[in-house]
């Protein structure tokens, strides 16, 4: 009876792997798809954080294998379009530049115009609502015996304003969602 060498952790792991059932082609395809989606999101995040330029993201998507390229591009485009917001318009052009780099059907200027219309309508309604709620509050204060040019209600700190703001944001978010979908190629927007 000879002495038996202890197996290394690597050898034990390899034995376990060898014992596992082999992935079929569908499962391999699914794994590659998940990997491509994750890579596409990472590419978009790097662009949003200004780590990568728009030419970098074009090159990175182009480097995907032909069967994975579609997933990577779609997830990058979805990630970029989700970053568009009603309350942060200063980043819109940068995001749309990135989208236009991955989807040739999108023109930054035209898309920016459409997006600005949505944001402007939201901001105008928000401002008008603020003014009208402030007027009501000023009247209420006057009844309590508090008025004058030195004093204004701190509406932004009040729950009533925060609830109204959330309600308006939700109603305009529907328009934004439709716009975001329109930035994806037709086959991807479903």
């Amino acid at each position: 009876m000879g002495s038996q060498r202890a197996k290394t952790a690597f050898e034990l792991a390899m034995e376990k792997v060898a014992g596992m059932p082999k992935l079929n082609s569908e499962e391999i395809k699914e794994e590659h798809k998940k990997e491509s989606i994750a890579k596409g999101q990472a590419i978009a995040q790097n662009y949003l954080q200004n780590i990568h330029h728009k030419t970098d993201i074009q090159n990175e998507i182009a480097a995907f294998s032909p069967d994975q390229e579609g997933y990577g591009r779609k997830s990058a485009l979805e990630c970029l379009s989700q970053a568009l917001s009603l309350t942060n318009p200063q980043t819109s052009r940068h995001i749309l530049d990135g989208i236009a780099a991955l989807n040739p059907n999108v023109s930054t200027d035209a898309a920016l115009k459409r997006l600005n219309n949505i944001i402007d309508a939201f901001q105008k309604e928000l401002a008008a609502t603020y003014v009208s709620m402030e007027k009501i509050e000023v009247k209420r204060l006057k009844k309590e015996g508090i008025s004058g040019s030195a004093i204004k209600p701190n509406l932004k700190a009040q729950n009533s304003w925060q609830e109204k703001q959330a309600e308006l944001t939700a109603s305009h978010t529907d328009k934004l969602n439709n716009f975001q979908k329109s930035l994806l190629p037709p086959a991807m927007s479903g």
């Binding site: 204060l141 006057k142 009844k143 015996g145 508090i146 008025s147 004058g148 040019s149 030195a150 004093i151 204004k152 209600p153 701190n154 700190a157 009040q158």
Partner: peptide, 14 residues
């Protein structure tokens, strides 16, 4: 703060 102040007049009483 319920109210914000700026330079100006403050009228008290109905």
């Amino acid at each position: 703060a319920d109210l914000l102040l700026d330079e100006g007049d403050l009228k008290l009483g109905t």
